[in-house]
Design a binder for these strands. Sequence first.
DNA 1: ATGGATATCAGTAGAAATACGGATATATCA
DNA 2: TGATATATCCGTATTTCTACTGATATCCAT
Lengths: 207, 207
Amino acid sequence: MTKVLLVDDHAIMIDGLKSMLSTRTDLRVSATASSAGFALAYLAKDHIDLMITDYSMPDIDGLELVKRAKSQFPDLKIIMLSMHDEPAIINAVMKAGLDAYILKKYALEELSHAIDAIQAGRQYWSPEVTRVLLHEEKSSGLHANELTSREIEILKLLTQELNSRQIAEKLFISERTVETHRKNLLRKTQCATTIGLIKYAYLHKLI
Amino acid sequence: MTKVLLVDDHAIMIDGLKSMLSTRTDLRVSATASSAGFALAYLAKDHIDLMITDYSMPDIDGLELVKRAKSQFPDLKIIMLSMHDEPAIINAVMKAGLDAYILKKYALEELSHAIDAIQAGRQYWSPEVTRVLLHEEKSSGLHANELTSREIEILKLLTQELNSRQIAEKLFISERTVETHRKNLLRKTQCATTIGLIKYAYLHKLI
DNA sequence: ATGGATATCAGTAGAAATACGGATATATCA
DNA sequence: TGATATATCCGTATTTCTACTGATATCCAT
Protein backbone atom coordinates (compact mmCIF):
# COMPACT_ATOMS: atom_id res chain seq x y z
CA MET A 1 0.00 0.00 0.00
CA THR A 2 1.57 3.26 -1.15
CA LYS A 3 1.30 5.99 1.44
CA VAL A 4 0.62 9.35 -0.14
CA LEU A 5 1.04 12.92 1.08
CA LEU A 6 -0.88 15.62 -0.78
CA VAL A 7 0.52 19.13 -0.70
CA ASP A 8 -1.40 22.14 -1.96
CA ASP A 9 -2.40 25.39 -0.34
CA HIS A 10 -5.77 25.27 -2.07
CA ALA A 11 -8.06 23.01 -0.10
CA ILE A 12 -10.29 22.50 -3.09
CA MET A 13 -7.39 21.06 -5.06
CA ILE A 14 -6.65 18.68 -2.20
CA ASP A 15 -10.29 17.72 -2.31
CA GLY A 16 -10.24 17.09 -6.01
CA LEU A 17 -7.09 15.02 -5.77
CA LYS A 18 -8.48 13.00 -2.88
CA SER A 19 -11.65 12.11 -4.69
CA MET A 20 -9.66 11.24 -7.76
CA LEU A 21 -7.25 9.01 -5.89
CA SER A 22 -10.08 7.35 -3.95
CA THR A 23 -10.73 5.14 -6.97
CA ARG A 24 -7.34 3.47 -6.59
CA THR A 25 -6.99 0.57 -4.20
CA ASP A 26 -3.20 0.44 -4.26
CA LEU A 27 -2.61 3.65 -2.34
CA ARG A 28 -3.89 5.61 0.58
CA VAL A 29 -3.75 9.33 1.27
CA SER A 30 -2.04 9.43 4.65
CA ALA A 31 -2.06 13.15 5.09
CA THR A 32 -2.42 16.51 3.41
CA ALA A 33 -0.41 19.69 3.89
CA SER A 34 -1.19 23.27 2.96
CA SER A 35 2.39 24.44 2.68
CA ALA A 36 5.86 23.16 1.89
CA GLY A 37 6.88 23.65 5.50
CA PHE A 38 4.03 21.52 6.80
CA ALA A 39 4.88 18.89 4.20
CA LEU A 40 8.51 18.68 5.28
CA ALA A 41 7.45 18.51 8.91
CA TYR A 42 5.09 15.65 8.18
CA LEU A 43 7.69 13.74 6.18
CA ALA A 44 9.97 13.85 9.20
CA LYS A 45 7.52 12.18 11.54
CA ASP A 46 5.80 9.62 9.32
CA HIS A 47 6.97 7.39 6.49
CA ILE A 48 5.60 8.49 3.14
CA ASP A 49 6.14 6.75 -0.19
CA LEU A 50 4.78 9.33 -2.57
CA MET A 51 4.33 13.07 -2.29
CA ILE A 52 2.04 14.81 -4.77
CA THR A 53 2.66 18.51 -4.55
CA ASP A 54 1.82 21.78 -6.16
CA TYR A 55 4.64 23.95 -7.45
CA SER A 56 3.35 27.29 -6.18
CA MET A 57 3.34 27.46 -2.43
CA PRO A 58 2.96 30.24 0.12
CA ASP A 59 6.25 29.62 1.91
CA ILE A 60 8.89 28.12 -0.36
CA ASP A 61 8.45 27.11 -3.98
CA GLY A 62 8.32 23.64 -5.43
CA LEU A 63 11.96 23.61 -6.50
CA GLU A 64 13.18 24.20 -2.99
CA LEU A 65 10.73 21.67 -1.60
CA VAL A 66 11.96 18.96 -3.97
CA LYS A 67 15.57 19.72 -3.12
CA ARG A 68 15.02 19.54 0.62
CA ALA A 69 12.70 16.55 0.52
CA LYS A 70 14.97 14.52 -1.77
CA SER A 71 18.08 15.29 0.26
CA GLN A 72 16.42 14.21 3.48
CA PHE A 73 14.38 11.32 2.07
CA PRO A 74 16.10 9.97 -1.05
CA ASP A 75 13.59 7.13 -1.46
CA LEU A 76 10.61 9.45 -1.45
CA LYS A 77 8.90 9.72 -4.82
CA ILE A 78 7.60 13.11 -5.80
CA ILE A 79 5.01 14.10 -8.38
CA MET A 80 4.66 17.77 -9.08
CA LEU A 81 1.54 19.45 -10.36
CA SER A 82 2.09 22.86 -11.82
CA MET A 83 0.51 25.44 -14.05
CA HIS A 84 3.89 26.53 -15.37
CA ASP A 85 5.01 25.19 -18.72
CA GLU A 86 8.24 27.17 -18.70
CA PRO A 87 11.31 25.11 -19.62
CA ALA A 88 13.38 26.99 -17.06
CA ILE A 89 11.15 25.80 -14.26
CA ILE A 90 10.72 22.26 -15.52
CA ASN A 91 14.43 21.85 -16.07
CA ALA A 92 15.22 23.08 -12.61
CA VAL A 93 12.91 20.69 -10.80
CA MET A 94 13.91 17.81 -13.07
CA LYS A 95 17.52 18.31 -12.09
CA ALA A 96 16.51 18.41 -8.46
CA GLY A 97 15.40 14.81 -8.76
CA LEU A 98 11.69 15.10 -9.37
CA ASP A 99 9.94 11.90 -10.49
CA ALA A 100 7.07 13.37 -12.46
CA TYR A 101 6.02 16.81 -13.64
CA ILE A 102 2.43 17.22 -14.70
CA LEU A 103 0.73 20.34 -15.97
CA LYS A 104 -2.38 20.98 -13.91
CA LYS A 105 -4.57 21.24 -16.95
CA TYR A 106 -3.80 17.59 -17.69
CA ALA A 107 -3.73 16.38 -14.09
CA LEU A 108 -6.99 14.51 -14.37
CA GLU A 109 -5.83 12.46 -17.33
CA GLU A 110 -2.18 12.00 -16.47
CA LEU A 111 -1.86 11.70 -12.73
CA SER A 112 -2.85 8.06 -12.66
CA HIS A 113 -0.42 7.22 -15.44
CA ALA A 114 2.31 8.99 -13.52
CA ILE A 115 1.57 7.00 -10.37
CA ASP A 116 1.65 3.76 -12.36
CA ALA A 117 4.99 4.66 -13.88
CA ILE A 118 6.50 5.59 -10.55
CA GLN A 119 5.26 2.46 -8.85
CA ALA A 120 6.95 0.55 -11.66
CA GLY A 121 10.19 2.33 -10.80
CA ARG A 122 10.17 4.70 -13.72
CA GLN A 123 9.86 8.44 -14.13
CA TYR A 124 6.90 9.97 -15.91
CA TRP A 125 7.06 12.90 -18.26
CA SER A 126 3.84 14.00 -19.79
CA PRO A 127 3.70 14.50 -23.55
CA GLU A 128 3.18 18.20 -23.12
CA VAL A 129 6.21 18.52 -20.85
CA THR A 130 8.49 16.61 -23.18
CA ARG A 131 7.18 18.66 -26.05
CA VAL A 132 8.07 21.82 -24.20
CA LEU A 133 11.51 20.50 -23.36
CA LEU A 134 12.18 19.32 -26.89
CA HIS A 135 11.02 22.60 -28.30
CA GLU A 136 13.33 24.34 -25.88
CA GLU A 137 16.28 22.32 -27.06
CA LYS A 138 15.47 23.22 -30.61
CA SER A 139 15.01 26.91 -30.00
CA SER A 140 17.94 26.91 -27.63
CA GLY A 141 20.10 27.91 -30.53
CA LEU A 142 19.33 31.44 -29.50
CA HIS A 143 19.87 31.17 -25.80
CA ALA A 144 21.82 27.94 -25.78
CA ASN A 145 22.80 28.47 -22.18
CA GLU A 146 20.01 27.41 -19.88
CA LEU A 147 20.00 28.88 -16.45
CA THR A 148 21.16 26.51 -13.75
CA SER A 149 18.96 25.85 -10.76
CA ARG A 150 21.30 27.87 -8.60
CA GLU A 151 21.06 30.77 -10.99
CA ILE A 152 17.29 30.55 -10.97
CA GLU A 153 17.39 30.54 -7.21
CA ILE A 154 19.47 33.72 -7.22
CA LEU A 155 17.17 35.29 -9.78
CA LYS A 156 14.11 34.60 -7.68
CA LEU A 157 15.71 36.21 -4.66
CA LEU A 158 16.61 39.20 -6.83
CA THR A 159 12.98 39.60 -7.78
CA GLN A 160 12.21 39.82 -4.08
CA GLU A 161 14.21 43.06 -3.94
CA LEU A 162 17.13 41.51 -2.13
CA ASN A 163 20.58 42.86 -2.88
CA SER A 164 23.70 40.75 -3.26
CA ARG A 165 24.67 40.97 0.38
CA GLN A 166 21.24 39.84 1.54
CA ILE A 167 21.18 36.96 -0.93
CA ALA A 168 24.64 35.88 0.22
CA GLU A 169 23.47 35.84 3.82
CA LYS A 170 20.34 33.93 2.93
CA LEU A 171 22.19 31.23 0.99
CA PHE A 172 25.23 31.11 3.25
CA ILE A 173 27.61 31.91 0.41
CA SER A 174 30.00 34.74 -0.30
CA GLU A 175 28.79 38.02 -1.71
CA ARG A 176 31.37 37.44 -4.43
CA THR A 177 29.68 34.23 -5.44
CA VAL A 178 26.36 35.98 -5.69
CA GLU A 179 27.97 38.62 -7.86
CA THR A 180 29.41 35.94 -10.10
CA HIS A 181 25.99 34.36 -10.47
CA ARG A 182 24.49 37.72 -11.29
CA LYS A 183 27.22 38.34 -13.85
CA ASN A 184 26.46 34.98 -15.45
CA LEU A 185 22.73 35.67 -15.35
CA LEU A 186 23.27 38.94 -17.20
CA ARG A 187 25.46 37.20 -19.74
CA LYS A 188 23.17 34.24 -20.30
CA THR A 189 20.01 36.29 -20.60
CA GLN A 190 21.82 38.98 -22.58
CA CYS A 191 20.50 41.64 -20.28
CA ALA A 192 22.19 44.94 -19.58
CA THR A 193 20.95 45.46 -16.04
CA THR A 194 19.14 43.75 -13.22
CA ILE A 195 15.99 45.32 -14.57
CA GLY A 196 16.29 43.10 -17.60
CA LEU A 197 16.62 40.08 -15.34
CA ILE A 198 13.36 40.94 -13.62
CA LYS A 199 11.66 41.16 -16.99
CA TYR A 200 13.21 37.84 -17.94
CA ALA A 201 11.83 36.36 -14.73
CA TYR A 202 8.35 37.62 -15.57
CA LEU A 203 8.58 36.41 -19.13
CA HIS A 204 9.63 32.95 -18.01
CA LYS A 205 7.06 32.92 -15.23
CA LEU A 206 9.60 32.66 -12.48
CA ILE A 207 7.51 35.22 -10.66
CA MET B 1 -32.96 25.80 -9.93
CA THR B 2 -29.82 27.86 -10.52
CA LYS B 3 -28.02 26.89 -13.70
CA VAL B 4 -24.28 27.00 -13.27
CA LEU B 5 -21.39 27.20 -15.71
CA LEU B 6 -17.95 26.21 -14.43
CA VAL B 7 -14.92 27.72 -16.15
CA ASP B 8 -11.39 26.54 -15.50
CA ASP B 9 -8.67 25.25 -17.76
CA HIS B 10 -7.66 22.68 -15.15
CA ALA B 11 -9.96 19.70 -15.42
CA ILE B 12 -9.14 18.62 -11.91
CA MET B 13 -10.40 21.91 -10.55
CA ILE B 14 -13.62 21.47 -12.49
CA ASP B 15 -13.85 18.03 -10.95
CA GLY B 16 -13.29 19.33 -7.45
CA LEU B 17 -15.87 22.07 -7.90
CA LYS B 18 -18.41 19.65 -9.34
CA SER B 19 -18.11 17.23 -6.45
CA MET B 20 -18.32 20.10 -4.04
CA LEU B 21 -21.42 21.59 -5.65
CA SER B 22 -23.08 18.18 -5.93
CA THR B 23 -24.09 18.47 -2.27
CA ARG B 24 -26.34 21.39 -3.08
CA THR B 25 -29.87 20.73 -4.30
CA ASP B 26 -30.63 24.29 -5.34
CA LEU B 27 -28.34 24.39 -8.35
CA ARG B 28 -27.20 22.29 -11.25
CA VAL B 29 -23.95 22.42 -13.19
CA SER B 30 -25.21 22.88 -16.74
CA ALA B 31 -21.85 22.94 -18.42
CA THR B 32 -18.13 23.40 -18.01
CA ALA B 33 -15.66 25.31 -20.12
CA SER B 34 -11.89 25.12 -20.30
CA SER B 35 -11.33 28.66 -21.54
CA ALA B 36 -12.91 32.10 -21.44
CA GLY B 37 -13.72 31.84 -25.12
CA PHE B 38 -15.64 28.59 -24.69
CA ALA B 39 -17.44 30.10 -21.72
CA LEU B 40 -18.62 33.13 -23.70
CA ALA B 41 -19.69 30.89 -26.54
CA TYR B 42 -21.75 28.76 -24.18
CA LEU B 43 -23.36 31.77 -22.53
CA ALA B 44 -24.60 32.86 -25.94
CA LYS B 45 -26.42 29.66 -26.69
CA ASP B 46 -27.84 28.63 -23.33
CA HIS B 47 -29.25 30.55 -20.37
CA ILE B 48 -26.95 30.50 -17.36
CA ASP B 49 -27.66 32.04 -13.97
CA LEU B 50 -24.28 31.74 -12.35
CA MET B 51 -20.77 31.46 -13.78
CA ILE B 52 -17.99 30.28 -11.48
CA THR B 53 -14.72 31.02 -13.16
CA ASP B 54 -11.01 30.99 -12.62
CA TYR B 55 -9.09 34.22 -13.09
CA SER B 56 -6.13 32.78 -14.97
CA MET B 57 -7.10 31.51 -18.34
CA PRO B 58 -5.22 30.43 -21.45
CA ASP B 59 -6.92 32.88 -23.81
CA ILE B 60 -8.07 36.05 -22.06
CA ASP B 61 -7.84 36.84 -18.36
CA GLY B 62 -10.63 36.94 -15.85
CA LEU B 63 -10.99 40.71 -15.96
CA GLU B 64 -11.71 40.71 -19.66
CA LEU B 65 -14.07 37.77 -19.30
CA VAL B 66 -16.12 39.57 -16.62
CA LYS B 67 -16.28 42.71 -18.72
CA ARG B 68 -17.49 40.90 -21.80
CA ALA B 69 -19.86 38.58 -19.99
CA LYS B 70 -21.46 41.36 -17.94
CA SER B 71 -21.91 43.63 -20.94
CA GLN B 72 -23.61 40.88 -22.93
CA PHE B 73 -25.53 39.29 -20.06
CA PRO B 74 -26.16 41.89 -17.35
CA ASP B 75 -28.23 39.50 -15.24
CA LEU B 76 -25.54 36.82 -15.14
CA LYS B 77 -23.96 36.42 -11.72
CA ILE B 78 -20.24 35.74 -11.64
CA ILE B 79 -18.07 34.27 -8.92
CA MET B 80 -14.35 34.41 -9.49
CA LEU B 81 -11.83 32.02 -7.99
CA SER B 82 -8.29 33.27 -8.06
CA MET B 83 -4.91 32.74 -6.52
CA HIS B 84 -4.09 36.44 -6.80
CA ASP B 85 -4.48 38.57 -3.70
CA GLU B 86 -3.21 41.69 -5.43
CA PRO B 87 -5.37 44.74 -4.70
CA ALA B 88 -4.84 45.99 -8.23
CA ILE B 89 -6.38 42.84 -9.68
CA ILE B 90 -9.20 42.58 -7.17
CA ASN B 91 -10.10 46.23 -7.62
CA ALA B 92 -10.17 45.86 -11.37
CA VAL B 93 -12.55 42.90 -11.44
CA MET B 94 -14.73 44.49 -8.75
CA LYS B 95 -15.18 47.54 -10.90
CA ALA B 96 -16.05 45.31 -13.83
CA GLY B 97 -19.14 44.16 -11.93
CA LEU B 98 -18.00 40.91 -10.41
CA ASP B 99 -20.34 39.46 -7.77
CA ALA B 100 -17.84 37.53 -5.67
CA TYR B 101 -14.09 37.19 -5.52
CA ILE B 102 -12.72 34.21 -3.63
CA LEU B 103 -9.11 33.26 -3.10
CA LYS B 104 -8.60 29.68 -4.22
CA LYS B 105 -7.06 28.69 -0.94
CA TYR B 106 -10.36 29.43 0.76
CA ALA B 107 -12.61 28.19 -2.04
CA LEU B 108 -13.72 25.11 -0.14
CA GLU B 109 -14.90 27.10 2.84
CA GLU B 110 -16.24 30.18 1.14
CA LEU B 111 -17.74 29.17 -2.16
CA SER B 112 -20.98 27.97 -0.64
CA HIS B 113 -21.36 31.14 1.39
CA ALA B 114 -20.76 33.16 -1.76
CA ILE B 115 -23.47 31.26 -3.63
CA ASP B 116 -25.90 31.80 -0.75
CA ALA B 117 -25.16 35.51 -0.73
CA ILE B 118 -25.61 35.85 -4.46
CA GLN B 119 -28.85 33.90 -4.50
CA ALA B 120 -30.04 36.33 -1.85
CA GLY B 121 -29.23 39.18 -4.21
CA ARG B 122 -26.09 40.30 -2.43
CA GLN B 123 -22.43 40.41 -3.29
CA TYR B 124 -19.92 38.34 -1.39
CA TRP B 125 -16.47 39.49 -0.37
CA SER B 126 -14.38 37.08 1.57
CA PRO B 127 -12.72 38.30 4.77
CA GLU B 128 -9.30 37.92 3.20
CA VAL B 129 -10.26 39.98 0.18
CA THR B 130 -11.76 42.77 2.23
CA ARG B 131 -8.68 42.73 4.41
CA VAL B 132 -6.51 43.16 1.36
CA LEU B 133 -8.69 45.94 0.04
CA LEU B 134 -8.84 47.74 3.36
CA HIS B 135 -5.11 47.52 3.68
CA GLU B 136 -4.86 48.98 0.23
CA GLU B 137 -7.15 51.85 1.11
CA LYS B 138 -5.20 52.53 4.25
CA SER B 139 -1.87 52.53 2.51
CA SER B 140 -3.42 54.44 -0.37
CA GLY B 141 -3.62 57.30 2.08
CA LEU B 142 0.13 57.33 1.87
CA HIS B 143 0.40 57.20 -1.85
CA ALA B 144 -2.96 58.79 -2.48
CA ASN B 145 -0.91 60.56 -5.09
CA GLU B 146 -1.08 58.67 -8.28
CA LEU B 147 2.06 58.69 -10.33
CA THR B 148 2.34 61.72 -12.53
CA SER B 149 2.58 61.28 -16.26
CA ARG B 150 6.19 62.37 -16.14
CA GLU B 151 6.92 59.77 -13.50
CA ILE B 152 5.19 57.09 -15.54
CA GLU B 153 7.26 58.18 -18.51
CA ILE B 154 10.44 57.76 -16.49
CA LEU B 155 9.26 54.42 -15.17
CA LYS B 156 8.59 53.11 -18.65
CA LEU B 157 12.05 54.12 -19.78
CA LEU B 158 13.46 52.41 -16.70
CA THR B 159 11.75 49.19 -17.72
CA GLN B 160 13.58 49.46 -21.02
CA GLU B 161 16.85 49.01 -19.16
CA LEU B 162 17.91 52.61 -19.54
CA ASN B 163 19.93 54.16 -16.72
CA SER B 164 19.48 57.65 -15.39
CA ARG B 165 22.02 59.18 -17.75
CA GLN B 166 20.38 57.64 -20.81
CA ILE B 167 16.92 58.72 -19.69
CA ALA B 168 18.21 62.25 -19.12
CA GLU B 169 19.63 62.36 -22.64
CA LYS B 170 16.45 60.98 -24.12
CA LEU B 171 14.21 63.51 -22.37
CA PHE B 172 16.64 66.43 -22.65
CA ILE B 173 16.66 66.97 -18.91
CA SER B 174 19.33 66.81 -16.26
CA GLU B 175 20.46 63.52 -14.79
CA ARG B 176 19.64 65.09 -11.43
CA THR B 177 16.04 65.52 -12.44
CA VAL B 178 15.79 61.92 -13.47
CA GLU B 179 17.20 60.93 -10.11
CA THR B 180 14.64 63.06 -8.35
CA HIS B 181 11.86 61.42 -10.30
CA ARG B 182 13.25 58.01 -9.41
CA LYS B 183 13.44 58.98 -5.77
CA ASN B 184 9.81 60.08 -5.87
CA LEU B 185 8.81 56.90 -7.66
CA LEU B 186 10.42 54.81 -4.95
CA ARG B 187 8.70 56.85 -2.27
CA LYS B 188 5.26 56.79 -3.87
CA THR B 189 5.29 53.11 -4.65
CA GLN B 190 6.96 52.29 -1.34
CA CYS B 191 9.60 50.25 -3.10
CA ALA B 192 13.09 49.67 -1.80
CA THR B 193 14.84 49.32 -5.12
CA THR B 194 14.32 49.77 -8.83
CA ILE B 195 13.46 46.11 -8.97
CA GLY B 196 10.33 46.90 -7.02
CA LEU B 197 9.47 49.58 -9.54
CA ILE B 198 9.64 47.06 -12.36
CA LYS B 199 7.31 44.76 -10.46
CA TYR B 200 5.02 47.73 -9.86
CA ALA B 201 5.05 48.43 -13.57
CA TYR B 202 4.07 44.85 -14.34
CA LEU B 203 1.36 44.83 -11.72
CA HIS B 204 -0.14 48.02 -13.08
CA LYS B 205 0.27 46.83 -16.62
CA LEU B 206 2.61 49.63 -17.61
CA ILE B 207 4.59 46.98 -19.43
C1' DA C 1 -2.48 84.16 -1.40
C1' DT C 2 -0.91 80.34 0.79
C1' DG C 3 -0.06 75.59 0.58
C1' DG C 4 0.70 71.63 -2.13
C1' DA C 5 2.00 69.04 -5.97
C1' DT C 6 4.80 69.08 -10.03
C1' DA C 7 9.01 69.56 -12.67
C1' DT C 8 13.26 71.21 -12.90
C1' DC C 9 18.31 71.41 -11.04
C1' DA C 10 22.57 70.89 -7.66
C1' DG C 11 26.33 69.03 -4.09
C1' DT C 12 28.08 65.48 -1.34
C1' DA C 13 28.33 60.98 0.41
C1' DG C 14 27.91 56.32 0.56
C1' DA C 15 25.99 51.97 -0.97
C1' DA C 16 25.42 48.88 -4.56
C1' DA C 17 26.16 47.04 -9.01
C1' DT C 18 29.06 46.12 -12.89
C1' DA C 19 33.53 45.27 -15.39
C1' DC C 20 37.73 43.55 -15.44
C1' DG C 21 41.01 40.30 -14.05
C1' DG C 22 41.67 36.01 -12.05
C1' DA C 23 41.34 31.31 -8.94
C1' DT C 24 39.88 26.42 -7.04
C1' DA C 25 37.13 22.13 -6.54
C1' DT C 26 33.81 19.08 -8.29
C1' DA C 27 31.19 16.63 -11.41
C1' DT C 28 29.87 15.20 -15.79
C1' DC C 29 30.72 13.76 -20.31
C1' DA C 30 32.92 12.61 -24.66
C1' DT D 1 41.94 11.29 -19.77
C1' DG D 2 40.78 15.76 -21.12
C1' DA D 3 37.28 19.10 -21.85
C1' DT D 4 33.25 21.45 -20.13
C1' DA D 5 30.07 23.13 -16.87
C1' DT D 6 29.03 24.32 -12.33
C1' DA D 7 29.63 26.51 -8.00
C1' DT D 8 32.48 28.56 -5.16
C1' DC D 9 35.75 32.61 -3.98
C1' DC D 10 38.96 37.05 -4.33
C1' DG D 11 40.91 42.00 -5.70
C1' DT D 12 40.58 46.32 -7.98
C1' DA D 13 38.32 49.80 -10.44
C1' DT D 14 34.51 52.15 -12.28
C1' DT D 15 29.83 53.17 -12.85
C1' DT D 16 25.39 53.59 -11.18
C1' DC D 17 22.10 54.19 -7.79
C1' DT D 18 20.40 55.87 -3.41
C1' DA D 19 20.33 59.09 0.64
C1' DC D 20 20.57 63.26 2.42
C1' DT D 21 20.61 68.00 2.04
C1' DG D 22 19.07 71.77 -0.42
C1' DA D 23 17.01 75.15 -4.47
C1' DT D 24 13.64 77.60 -8.10
C1' DA D 25 9.51 78.10 -10.96
C1' DT D 26 4.89 76.82 -12.35
C1' DC D 27 0.37 75.51 -11.71
C1' DC D 28 -3.72 74.48 -9.13
C1' DA D 29 -7.01 74.62 -5.54
C1' DT D 30 -8.79 76.11 -0.94
